[in-house]
Amino acid sequence: MELTLSILLGFMIIGAIFALHAKDLLSAVIAAGIVGYSLVICFLLLKAPDLAIVQIVVETITLIIMVAVVLDSTRQELSVKIDRQQIINISLAVIFMLVLVFFFIQAINTLNPFGEHSLRMASAYVGETASKTGSANLVTGVLFDFRGYDTLGEATILFTAAIGVLTILRIKGKK
């Protein structure tokens, strides 16, 4: 199990590195699609079918939007020369990464090993969702009953994003 996941994650890392270094923006977008679709397989292996369904549809729609934008503008990647600003950026990135690695090492020591998660907080959810809400799918039960505020916030963000896109992309006013 852990080996399969590691291979998939390695595949995702290779796709991500290629996406950042591709000379053609269209191939960069498609390489980002590799990462997203590998994520679907990871979700299926980790016993999360709800997430797999959502992710495969959402990734397809994201890819359609990105390809439409890239084909509409330009496919050329900028020719990047190494100058002073670029060196400053790279060193800043390395410093940030080292700081994050330090905190990651601290955090990983407190985590349980993979596959031995303790249901400390979720035991109430797992035990009572079915009897209290009558929902057979525990994820839906948690999402719409115990964690209703999160769902409301999510719907609000989606609404705001749609309004924002409409506002940004409007050239002619509505009569």
């Binding site: 016993k47 979720a122 959810y125 797992v126 994820v139 999510e154």
Partner: peptide, 15 residues
């Protein structure tokens, strides 16, 4: 498996 992270990630994907 723990349903709580799955519920959180479900909203995060759409966001």
């Amino acid at each position: 498996v723990d349903p709580l992270p799955q519920a959180m990630v479900l909203t995060a994907i759409v966001i």
